[in-house]
Structure formats: C-alpha cells, structure tokens
Design a protein around this nucleic acid. Structure first.
Lengths: 145, 145
DNA sequence: TTGCGTGCAAAGGTTTTGCATGGCA
DNA sequence: TGCCATGCAAAACCTTTGCACGCAA
C-alpha cells in the first residue's frame, strides 16, 4: 500500500471531495462524472479512472465490482470511523450494507490463515448476497405467481 | 431453475463436452472459443454466450463474475461428484485469484444464513487480503530495511 | 414445416491508452 | 524546468442484439 504522492490538482481535489461527501454510499465513474460536470467542474473520464486507480492503490478508496451492467463501484474509506474488525454484507437486491460483528466469523480469518496461508483484510472484503427482507419479498412474489 | 429443453446441436454438444472435461477448473468465453476453434469445431462467440446463459439458467453451469479484466468465469456443475460452490481469495498485492474449495468455509454460509438471515452468493463474493507469497515477500523486504 | 439455434457484424457499455498540452512543485 | 496530470479521441474488451439463414424435431 503506497503513499499518496501525487500532485494536488483541481480535478483530484474535486474527485476526493465528492467521494468524501458520499462516503456512506457507493458511486461509479458515470455518477462521478455527471455530478462533477453538473457542479461546473467537469473532469475527464480517463482522469477519473486514473485517479481512482491511485486512490485504490493507496488504500484511500475501496473498489468493488460484481456482476451487472453497472460497472465497478467505488467508496471512500473513512479511516477514522472505519471498522477494521468486522465484515460487511451487502444485499445485491436492495443495496443495503450490513455491518456484521460476529466472533464466529472472525474465526474464519484464523482458519484461512492457518490452512490456506492467506490473510484476509476484513475492511476490504464484502460478502454479497440477499438480506432477510429481500428474501422474504422474493418468496412472496413467488407465492403470488 | 428451468429444465433444459433446447435442441441438441453440434455447437451445444461441443460446448458442454468442453465444460465437462474441464469441470475442475474455471473457463471463460475466450478460452472456450479458442479451444473449440483449435479442435476444428469453431462456435460463434454469440452462441457461446447464449448457450452459457441457458446452462446457467438451468443450473448446469455456475457463473462467477468479479473484479478483473478477464470477464466472467464459468464452471460445469458436476452433480454426481458433489462439486461444491466455492469462494475466491484475491491477493491485493499481486492480484492473484485463488479458488478455494473448502467445506469449512462453506459452513460460514450456513452460519450467516441461520444467525443473520442473510444468504451469501459465493459467485459474487471475493475475500481480499494477502497471499502467502506476498506475505513472505513483505516480511523479507521488512528485514532488509 | 415450425421455430429455435447459429453466425456474422454491428452496437453497447466500461475501461484503457496514446499523445499533445497543461500545470504543480 | 522536470515531471506528472489532464483531455480528447481512439482503441481495447466483454457482452448483447438484429437479422438472415440453417437445422432439429
């Protein structure tokens, strides 16, 4: 994880500003691009991608991508309020992000380290799936049909 | 999950044949395309995607898609040999993707479902961290400095 | 014969890259 | 001044779609 050593440019500043102000949600390049343009400070797509890459590289931003046509999502990592000790569940249906404090789960960390020689970084890892609400909603939709 | 009701065509047969013979590994559309062409029985890309979609739909094939430039991965589901769904580990340092077949880990699925009402989708979930090689390399770099 | 399957090419969308220019330090 | 950053357009990729033709049942 490298240090952030780049120049401070207007574009970079605006991008980070946007990410910080939206740190509780996911964004994608398209959203960022549209938003910054609307603010009167447009930033080229290529620049957004390049800056984002660096931010991910330096550990400032989290990138995740899953199946779908939306492309990758990005989220600013709030280092002060970041929860390093638990995993996150994200519902693919409603988009809700669930913080999961659970000792049992932390044991998988040890298991993987001991048996697979791999050290998981919980702050970077998100479990994707369906939350209880959406599962119920789907079941009901099933019944109706 | 629908029944497989399509016609039996040469292309479909060849595709399934390839998937079955490579059921212990992941493939992608590009690989399939190149392989089938090399075998003297080329199949159009569009057809591969369309057939694959149906196979995923009918539960014959598993599709994984996540971060990376490789596109989605596909794997035949060997129903008789109870080939498990598995998780993926991705090294944040070297970028390597590790396929993790491990019963112990699948149990976390059950745990989360039972205790947290959340159903994880392993095909969309990737554990991020550091692989054994990179941990060793980092330790050595540490020593040197 | 009917209608699904196929192949090609074109389109769509996301991300990357080449290159000349601009701007930070 | 020396480099890195930026923008634009083009390219690269993966995947989907339209359409005419082929082929299984």
């Amino acid at each position: 994880m490298k240090r952030d050593q780049g120049y401070n440019t207007r574009q970079k500043e605006k991008l980070i500003d946007y990410l910080v102000r939206n740190k509780e949600k996911h964004t994608n390049v398209q959203e960022i691009s549209i938003y910054l343009a609307a603010e009167g400070t447009p930033v080229g797509t290529a620049t957004i991608y390049r800056q984002l890459d660096k931010l991910v590289e330096s550990g400032t931003v989290r990138k995740y991508s899953f199946d779908g046509k939306v492309g990758a999502c990005y989220q600013y990592i709030d280092k002060e309020h970041e929860c390093h000790e638990h995993f996150h569940l994200k519902c693919l249906v409603c988009g809700r992000l669930i913080h999961l404090d659970c000792d049992h789960l932390m044991s998988i960390n040890r298991h993987i380290e001991e048996h697979h020689g791999f050290v998981i970084d919980p702050s970077q890892t998100v479990f994707y799936g369906r939350c209880a609400d959406c599962i119920r909603a789907e079941a009901e939709a099933e019944d109706r049909s």
